[in-house]
Design a protein around this nucleic acid. Structure first.
Lengths: 340, 340
DNA sequence: CTGTTAGCGCATTCAA
DNA sequence: TTGAATGCGCTAACAG
């Protein structure tokens, strides 16, 4: 039988309330008494029953998710997962609020961050542009006692407690390895299409990709990256223009969004064979994969990311450590053969 | 505020005990009263607070894991994950026992299954050979009221409530797609090495692989599958013999274990270039990937599988449905670039 | 500074 | 067939 607060109280020769004070690091206990209780905890190997504590506290975890608005399919999928988590709120004792901001607008993110009341919010998960002002706003919020986790795109210089997303450097390398093998010895150029270099995930993917091509596939030369702000029409125009201008392009790596535009710009496979790797499984990319227009799609499971963010933020609010292996978001590679 | 049993009792005009009887489908309540309570539940939208219930019940979930003993790295990794879950037992209210049986020994599995006492065991997760006797034993156990989940390899004809593993048909297809692309137009033979066709996961992978080669890469001809009982020495001998006998082999798909033997049998890459795809990230396969000996490794996250099995079995014991997306085990594809 | 007491939402005796 | 009372492990007033 696991020891309880009663056992600790008896062992330490104090009352329940005192034990509770020590366990929750509340003031008003003599140094001497604190030590006695902690010794008893050690001796009996006590671990607090979190669900009993939560029951007594009627605890809920007020959480805020900040993400870009707009037509980006991936972001809308992310939002859907957050809404799914909201459905489970009664069971998970969460109270989740979603704040959407215009995409690529650091000031808007800062505005939301600064408007948050630490008394009303326990944790924040946000999809952020990696800019100094956002980093500073995150740090301010952390200083005010709110736990912050980054989602999808990281803020490496900030005080965020956790990044819920994939290793984007490795994702870029993976794309490089895939495209290199798919081109299989042919020499030529690879067009790289990105959303914005203000996003650390896009930056990392581009670096990882370039590193692998440079070291392992020196016959492939990078064109770009061209920035499209993740807008489908811009992507379409950019890709069309590049393919017209450079006849030696034999592959495309699209590391951002706007996948619909990419698909529209792709020439008929019969007339020009291109190895294509893109990111995120969405309605569009799924179909492109199935039709053989894309060779591979690299994906991050946004459901996993949302659930992980919630677990991490809750655990942190309770001062616990989450199961780290469970919080590692995988780089999913989809071919048409393993599409879920 | 969520309604509680008190609210239901008041709404239905009965006592707490009666509400509890109805909620837990215990006998000794008039039909009429049952209806009143159920109506109140509907009206207020009551959902039971599982953690409060578990606290009151001092509930624990006694679970048994059955898996093969022996040197198979993947199985030992699986066992390590189960032991990690045992560490979390106090928090998760589980009481986990591991039973190991000789590999490829249906009778041993049946023996363990039949020895289980439904009064002492809540759920069972097992790695099973897909043979009729094991299926029958699983069904007997289910009939005695124990929930059974299959782990890694499924028992499609049985009454198991859930399969905690990957879609092995899709995994085989994926391997086919990968090898097909890596061979890139070259014609030749592909050696398929399997553990045992008594395992449904191996069967499925072989079928999926063959299907893709047939439809998409007709220039590749399958040699095998050769069965090795997942023994490294047997794998080594079989692969060496095949490579000597068939000079047209240009690729190898190893869909079972004994990966160490495969690595030992692989010729120097300079003298003979082979596309190689194997399963499961282990110490050996990880190194082979890093060195460029393997082109890709298909993996299933056994930590995820174990945690999923526990969640599913617990949920089932409480009569709940788990989050299905969370229980889908991914087909992980690792190149050397995205090795974790 | 410390202890007593009354719940949190639910399950389970024991009476009636 | 039903209800009242007690306790699970923990927290939070309120006294002392």
């Amino acid at each position: 039988m696991r020891p309880t607060v009663h056992d600790i109280a008896a062992e330490a020769g104090v009352s329940l309330a005192t034990v509770d004070r020590v366990l929750n690091a509340r003031p008003g206990v003599r140094r001497k008494t604190v030590d006695k209780v902690q010794a008893a905890v050690e001796r009996l190997g006590y671990v607090r029953d979190v669900s009993a504590a939560n029951l007594a506290k009627k605890r809920t975890y007020p959480l805020v998710f900040i993400l870009p608005e707009g037509p980006n399919s991936f972001m809308r999928g992310l939002e859907a997962e957050i809404r799914a988590a909201m459905q489970r709120s009664p069971v998970e004792r969460t109270a989740i609020r979603i704040e959407t901001v215009p995409p690529f607008d650091p000031a808007a993110i800062v505005g939301v961050l600064d408007s948050l009341d630490p008394a009303e919010v326990n944790g924040v998960a946000l999809v952020a542009t990696d800019t100094p002002d956002v980093s500073a706003a995150v740090d301010r919020l952390v200083d005010r006692g709110v736990h912050v986790a980054t989602l999808v795109s990281d803020l490496p210089g900030s005080q965020r407690i956790h990044f819920c997303g994939i290793d984007n450097l490795a994702a870029g390398r993976t794309a490089g390895g895939l495209i290199g093998r798919f081109c299989n010895g042919r020499a030529g150029k690879v067009l790289v299409v990105a959303g914005s270099m203000k996003l650390s995930d896009h930056m990392d993917r581009a670096s990882g990709f370039a590193a692998v091509l440079r070291s392992e596939f020196p016959d492939l030369e990078i064109v770009g990256p061209v920035e499209t702000n993740d807008d489908a029409d811009t992507v379409r125009q950019a890709v069309t223009a590049a393919l017209d201008a450079e006849t030696e392009i034999i592959a495309i790596y699209s590391l951002g969004a706007g996948t619909r535009g990419l698909i529209e710009a792709l020439p008929d496979r019969e007339q020009r064979k291109l190895a294509v790797v893109a990111h995120e499984v969405t309605e569009h990319s799924r179909q492109a994969l199935a039709e053989g227009l894309f060779d591979a799609v690299i994906n991050q499971d946004c459901g996993h990311e949302v659930r992980s963010a919630i677990r991490v933020l809750k655990a942190r609010a309770d001062g616990l450590m989450p199961i780290s292996a469970q919080e590692r978001i995988r780089i999913d590679i989809f071919l048409k053969d393993n599409l879920p």
